[in-house]
Structure formats: C-alpha cells, structure tokens
Nucleic acid binder design. Sequence first.
DNA 1: TTGTAGGCGTTATCAA
DNA 2: TTGATAACGCCTACAA
Lengths: 362, 362
Amino acid sequence: MANPRRSNPNKAASIYDVAQAARVSVFTVSAVVNKKSHVGKKLRERVEAAINELHYRPNLLARSLAKQRTNTIGMVVPDIANPFFPTVVRGAEDAAQKHGYNLLLCNSDDILEKEESALELLLSKRVDGILLTKTAQDFTPSMRRMIAEVNTPFVLLMRTYPKLTKDAVITDDYKGAYEAVCQLARAGHRRIGLMGGPLKVSNGKARWQGFRDALEVKGLAYDPELVMEGDYRIESGYRGGHSLLSRRPDGVYVANYLMTVGFLKAADEMGVRCPEDFGLVSFDDYPWLALFRPRLTTVELPKYQVGFEAVELLLEKIVAPRRQGVVRMLMPELRVRDSCGFRLHMEKSRSEGPVSGVNSES
Amino acid sequence: MANPRRSNPNKAASIYDVAQAARVSVFTVSAVVNKKSHVGKKLRERVEAAINELHYRPNLLARSLAKQRTNTIGMVVPDIANPFFPTVVRGAEDAAQKHGYNLLLCNSDDILEKEESALELLLSKRVDGILLTKTAQDFTPSMRRMIAEVNTPFVLLMRTYPKLTKDAVITDDYKGAYEAVCQLARAGHRRIGLMGGPLKVSNGKARWQGFRDALEVKGLAYDPELVMEGDYRIESGYRGGHSLLSRRPDGVYVANYLMTVGFLKAADEMGVRCPEDFGLVSFDDYPWLALFRPRLTTVELPKYQVGFEAVELLLEKIVAPRRQGVVRMLMPELRVRDSCGFRLHMEKSRSEGPVSGVNSES
DNA sequence: TTGTAGGCGTTATCAA
DNA sequence: TTGATAACGCCTACAA
C-alpha cells in the first residue's frame, strides 16, 4: 500500500502530499495534473492551490514506470565532437521536442564495445525508441540477440546495416560522390584520386562506388593506387593526403569534411597547391567554409533534415510498431566554388558551353 | 503487493520472473545482480542461468525510483549546433561516464522560456545534478523559487550568474581578451575595435573589460564608436563587421568564433583585407582554422576541460551537498598566427627585441 | 464526478 | 545466507 502520510518535508512533494493538502484523493490530483476526466471547479481550484503551495512537480520516473512509456528517445552517434553530428542531433532534438519527447545521447567513438554498452544503457532506461549511427564493425551475437529480443523500434542514421536495416534515414551518398567526381572531370581533371571512408561502412562503400562509376562514365581510368581508405577523421585524411598526393593526381574527391581538413594540411606541407596543382571536391558544407582558401567545392548533406526526419520516422514506428520498413533517402547538393579548379579550367578553355545541373553559389 | 505471476511473455522480464524461474526470492536476484550480500554459489548460478534465459535487464526507471537516484546529470546549453559546445559536452560526457553517470542534454537557444522548461524537465526527471550555461536574461521569480526549493545541485558553465553562482567552471575571459588586445597593440595597431558578446552575459562583460583595460595599459584610446555588441552568432558578427569596419579601425578583437566568421565575411564583401587593412584576433580555436586565410590569431579556450571539470565538481556536490561554493577558472592560451598582422609588423620594424609571453605556433 | 486499491520493477528493512 | 514485504510516486481500472 502506498504511503498516505505526509513525507519528509524537505524532499519533493508527492501526489499524496498534494491530495492530503487539498483534501481529495490522488485520483483527483492526477486528473487535474493531466487534464483528464472532468474535475469540478471547486476541487480543481483546491488542488491547484495545493500544487502551488507545495511546489509539486510530477515525478517522471514514476509516471514512466506506471505508463510503460518514457517519452524519451535514445540516440547513439560516433562522436558529438565531430562537427557533422551536432546539427543532426539538433534536428532530432527539435523533432522530438515537437512531439513531447526528449533525447538521451551517447557516443560510440565508432567502437563496438562502446556501442554495445550504449545500447544496453538505453534499453535499461527503457527509451521508447533508438536512433543509431552504426559502428563499422558487425554486431556481436549478443547484440544481435539483444536487438531481436527487445521490441524497441530502431531507426538507422546515415549508415545502413544489412542485418538490421528495415528503417533508416540516409543521404544519397552514391549520387553525391558521383556528382563530385563528375564535377572534377568537368573541370578538366583526368587523373582523379579518392580519399574515401571505411569500406565497411555503408556510406563509405556508396561514396566509393559513386566515385568509381563516375570515372567509368567519364571514360577515366580507375587506378587503385589513387584510392585511399580513411576513417572520416582528420588524422586519416592527413596521412592519406601524404600518400595520395605523392602519386600526383590532378583531382581528388575527399569523402568527408574532417578528412579534407587533414588532407589540405598535408598538401600544404608538401607544397602542393589547390586548385593549381590538383582540384578537390569535398563532402559536407559549413558556414565557415567561406573563410577557407581555396573556397571548397563541396557536396552538402542535409544534416538537420536527417536528424529531424529520423525522429519522425521513429515516432511513427513507436505508434504503429508493425509497419513495413522504410528507408528515407535525402538528396545532397553540389556546391561549386574554387577548389575543384573549375574557374581555372574555364579560363583555359572558353570554348565549351554552359554546364547544366550545377548549383553555383553567388 | 507486487505481482508474483509470470507477466506477459512478450514484454521484458522483471526481477519477479527471474526469481520465479530460479526458484528464489527477488532479494536473491537483486543481490546477484548488484553483487551485494553474499549469495551461495548454488543459488547464484541458478539465478544467473535464469537471467540469461529470460534476457533479464534491470529496469533503471524502477531502480531510480526506489533508490531516489538516477545517476543522470542534466545539461543545458544554448545550442549544441554552435561548434563551441560539442566539445564541452564531450568532456562532460566522458567525465560522467567515468563515474557511472549519464547526460541528459537540452538546448535553450539562449531563450529564457526554453531554459525554464528545460530545467523543469530535468527536475521532473529527477536528475542528480544540473550543468547550466545561463541565458543572458535574468531568472524569472518562478525560476528563482524553483531553484531555491529544490535541493538539486547546480554548476554553472562558462557564464556566471550573480544570483546563483556558488559553483561554476569558467575560463579566464578577462585575461584572454586582455592578451588578445595586447597582441594587437604589439602588432602595431592603434585604433582598435571590439566585436563583443552580450554585455548581460558574464563573459561578454569580462571580454569587454579585458579589452578596455588592455587599451588603457597600452595607452590607447577607448572609442565607444568602435565597440559593437553582438550575440555570439554569425549574423551579429556579420552586421557588426559592416558597421565597425566602416569606421576604419586598424585592429579588431572579435570575442567569439562564430562572430569572426560573420565578421570576415563582411570584410570580404567590403573589400577590406585582413591583415593588410586591419589586424584581427579571434576567440576559440579549431583544427580546421589552419585552412582559413588569413590564418587566425586566436585565444584558445579549453572547451573539453570545462565540461570535464564541471562534471567532477558537480559530482563532488552531489556527494557532499553542503560544501562551500567554488569557482574554477581555466586558463586560455594565445595562439599567434597571421590575422593579427604581427608578421607584417615585424617586416616593417625589425628594430624591436623578441616579444615574451607569446606562444607562437610552429 | 470522485475515491479505492492494485500494479509498474526495484531497493531495503526485518525476520527467519 | 535467504525470504517477505513495505516503500518509491504515479496511473488507472473498477466502484461508489
């Protein structure tokens, strides 16, 4: 039986305390708080007075326990300090907020063990659904079992995973990479290299495939010597830059922002200039890229949208668990600036007509 | 009385289900799970078997309710999409993790109403402590009451707040600004302007004061015409840039990174060159600043440390609530590069001796 | 419209 | 060492 006595006065008031103070039952208090069931004006006012008097604040833990719903969404990202993710998280936050949900955030650092303990934690906290940007490594058997047993909905972000992907929100990385390389080709480059992401990650693979197919369509050679596999971090872009640039490509597609940062640092150290010595197209855009020299030609990814739509999709699944899986694919957008060497190219050969399908920034 | 029957088989197993399956009491299960109280080997093994069998995962909601502790820390930041905060959050995350705590994150957008509802939410979720980067606006009476009534420990981040500050982790912004302006003076600038933060925010004030005092020490005039008050966002730096640069300062201290981004965009549009036409010192450093032209002279703030130490301080308060308040102040670090015009200056006048107190980057 | 009491899944206090 | 059983604070049939 629950405690009907006024509890310790220097701790938060409970619904019982309010009920007692207002001389009503806990049901009435609950009804007032949740605006359910009509409560007579007189009692309602007494309850409201007591609530103010005692500074009553419903305990969401207890409510969640009783209702079997936490109104909380768990989110696992590789690293919130990677500038890509904050905007995704913000989009998710806003969508969650809009529907009365909150976000519980975890970092995996792209390490399987951390991913596992993060998921374990979120499930223990009984979140209503989970947003996951999968690590490069495969799930362990125990993780697979965990996900199968539990009936918490999952939505994958940015990366799909064959053994789990029913629902996901991703960007069309194949197309983005394809267009990036086409742009390099249009700018007159022939010996094009790739500073790519992990091939074990779906979007690393997709970007690589887009790169490859674009070369083929443009009648250019695919040279494995000119393909580097990185891990989306600055350091790998830096090392890859040194290796790749020593092989003298005249164009490079770098598959994410942080690697571009490392890559251009390497170029700087080697005294190789962009875009004079090689053209570059990057992935992902930020307001401050306007201050980079050269200004980067890049493929913008709708980060905020990804987070926002992922939450909306997840909430649909929470409401109607047995729906067909859906993968929502958001479109990237090529933004042509200086680093691809397009302007240089135009000066050299003015004979060609205008290029279509390109959004050139003012 | 709690339910001793095996509950609905397609929902998560409870401690009762485990107890029943292992033919022991819930106490025994609890003891095994928490490694408390010695449990005989035989029973322990039976319990462990049942746990595996049923995929039992303790419900942290129920545990928190019973223990009156959530092992969760609430954190309110203005905007996670502002590149300053992700690293702070990451530092907090790591510290929390280390002590078995988790982070619940909220954005206030520097809007008082959002701050209030965020705090309200965190308290309702019964977090064990709160990390707060205060909004520029004063607390409302109701917020003040809320904080006074509740006995949840608070630690302020980056910004102090006279009416609440007992415990805080901040950076020495006064000193940072002071050194920034000294550096501009050393680089030969005489007509120095300020693109500052909100004066209602403690660090906006401190940076302004540091600016002002440095001018005085250097024997330079303080001209209100050359002082702009922004809000730490790109747009305000952009607008302030247009206004300020039209008054032809030869040096500018910009009090945060995002405003620098806007400021330099304005300079670019106006055809005013940095560092040739004006020297600039910024606040805050990022790996990718290496790609900016000019390379920014800036005052680095120990973002990660701020988050990390704030959590450690908060946890101390959670353990020993009635401690004396402590404000921990972390030191900034001047990083001299090109934008302040120092190199230009050195070329002009080689007569001066070496400058001390400056960490010049390789 | 309002009240009663059982259940949500743990922990913790007393006994045995 | 184990087991009953009362909290923890809220929701919600079912009754009145």
